[in-house]
Amino acid sequence: MADHDNCVREVRREGNDIVVSLAGEIDLHKAPEVHRALVGACEGKPRNLVVNLEQVTYMDSSGIGTLVEVFRRVNAYEGKLGLSGVGPRVRSLFEITKLDKFFNIYPSEAEALRA
């Protein structure tokens, strides 16, 4: 069952930036794990924190809430949170919650890092 899979596939340093790649279904049960990883990534105050969602197949509101919470943290130290690999479902969630105007969404990880 996908339930036991790790949602956080990779945390990678790229110079002053950090890329966190997520995968699978990010729901109420997985949100805490994702949150821990992203909070951990914020600790070194990377200039860019890029969250790659390419392999995310499903996300619910708690996943979105997690991204918002991290967005606040990154803003607080004046870093930048970028999202890449945003699929149609996650994009729809952003639209419905009218969050698309707050988040920086990039077509690729490379472009997010260049921002």
């Binding site: 109420l28 049960h29 949100a31 805490p32 949150h35 708690s62 809430g65 997690t66 918002v68 919650t97």
Partner: peptide, 23 residues
């Protein structure tokens, strides 16, 4: 319902509440 069914941080639940109220 969020508190009943999960161990999500209260700060995140707060945000979800805001999203739902906005809708």
């Amino acid at each position: 319902p969020l508190q009943e069914h999960s161990y999500v941080d209260s700060s995140i639940i707060d945000i979800v509440v805001t999203l739902k109220l906005q809708q």
